[in-house]
Design a binder for these strands. Sequence first.
DNA 1: TTGTGTTTTATTGCCTCC
DNA 2: GGAGGCAATAAAACACAA
Length: 273
Amino acid sequence: MDHQSGHLFFDPSACHGNMLFLGSGGDSVFRGQRTMLSMEDNSKRRPFFSSPGDFYDEEYYDEQSPEKKRRLSAEQVHLLEKSFETENKLEPERKTELAKKLGLQPRQVAVWFQNRRARWKTKQLERDYDVLKASYDSLRSNYDSVVKENEKLKSEVVSLTEKVDTKETTTEVVPISGENLVPPAEAASQSVNVKAVEDRLSTGSVGSAVVDDDSPQLVDSGDSYFPTESDYPGEAMQSEEDDGSDSGQGYYTHVFAEQHEEEGEALGWWVWS
DNA sequence: TTGTGTTTTATTGCCTCC
DNA sequence: GGAGGCAATAAAACACAA
């Protein structure tokens, strides 16, 4: 008889106090014990009762220190796992049935399920954390890109503004008052020149005197650095209140998707399992 | 062999539901 | 109020490096 399967789930010596192992001879605990003898052979592990008779084996009994926990056998765990996969909650009938089948106390089965649910929850939290972290990392990287782009655009604005200023200062502006008042006809002519520059600036027309052909074109004169809806026809500009239940295709995603596509990256937006 | 960290089994106390 | 669930915790069993 193989006593080396290493898992004993019942310790008769522990039947005292408020411990719930067994109060009596341990009827159901021993049921099915013989079917659990084909566990892995692990000589490092200690023997367990192979039959109810062993329970009364004083020689063995004396070796056991009181209140020792016993691990469930691999077969018991396997069955419990299978049962857990089916349903992670335990109705009373199922608990009794499983307990009988495994030769355990119903309480032990209940405790096992309790602990198993706790382990599952922990794992689930870990998974959720990983998903959230991936999502955060992606957002963070996108945010950094936007900040960079923002800085770049700002410096462009500064450089263009400087160009405009240079143009304006080279244009002779007529003083409104002073000794050197110009004749009305001449003043009108100068005023037209200035206005023409302003007009070109405001319309952003091609061939502007300010914007060189080979310079980056500032297309939009609005306040925002971001395009309007017309820039991406047919795409909704998403607000922050969106619940994320759609594909999340706002401007940011559009831009970032393009950006990441160029970099050969796959965007993992809100990939919930 | 031993020290240490992890896993598993079990208890306790509190909470919710019927 | 009893049953069952969960969180926190204890403690035994186990794994593993030094």
